[in-house]
Amino acid sequence: MAAGVGIDPISQFQIKPIIGLRPFGLDLSFSNASLFMVFAVGVISAIMIYGSSQRAVVPGRLQSLAEITYEFVASTVTGVMGREGMKFFPLVFSLFMFVLTANLLGMIPGSFTVTSHIIVTTGLAVLVISVVLIYGIAKHGSHFFGLFVPSGAPAWLIPFMVLIEVVSFASRPISLALRLFGNMLAGHIGLKVFGGFVVMLTAQVSIFTVLAPLPMILAIALTALEFLVAFLQAYVFAILACVYLNDALHPGH
């Protein structure tokens, strides 16, 4: 929302409290971000629960959508983790659908993009890694830490290898969170900037107004790209979650 003629690509990320909520001095207000989280859950539930309520053998449109997403995520999960990975299916499915729906809801003009806030993506990434750690240690005990010891390395190299493995493991939630956050933030800023150029060029009629279609075309192309990115980032998030969860299932190197 450009104020006047200037470009303000940042205000779209502003958190605005809707219902104030401050227990123990904490700001837990229900904000526009919370509202779009609720929207995302509502949309997913509408597709998955209302869509499948007919239980038709020959599916309708909404049920087809529910089945396609189910089979898509299920094939991703089994493709990475095998059949036993299906115990993580609800988690991966919820992650994929939450990120995808939040990304796509963010594409509606004037809406809020939940996943453009680093704390949200960090929360999801920490969830994935904590499930990996808790499940891995509970299932395999100390054997789980064999993940950090590459087999077949010479003994004097082991300390360095372990250090590298620990660092790479620790960087997983960071890269998982930053990738999604960065993509969504940059895409939405880019859209706003190019949209703002169109507004600036057409606000006052001058010789430069002729150039207005150029950023307009770019903004259209960027919109298409952003839809692709919205899907792709959700898929990348889900498949990386699968890869990390696979380490908890099979910690052998």
Binding site: A33, A40, I119
Partner: peptide, 27 residues
Amino acid sequence: TFAGQLFWLAITFGALYWLMSTIALPR
């Protein structure tokens, strides 16, 4: 804003996980 966002993320994502794992996906 972090506290509020995490709080509502936990509630909404928890609800989503519960809805998906108990109702939608088995169905």
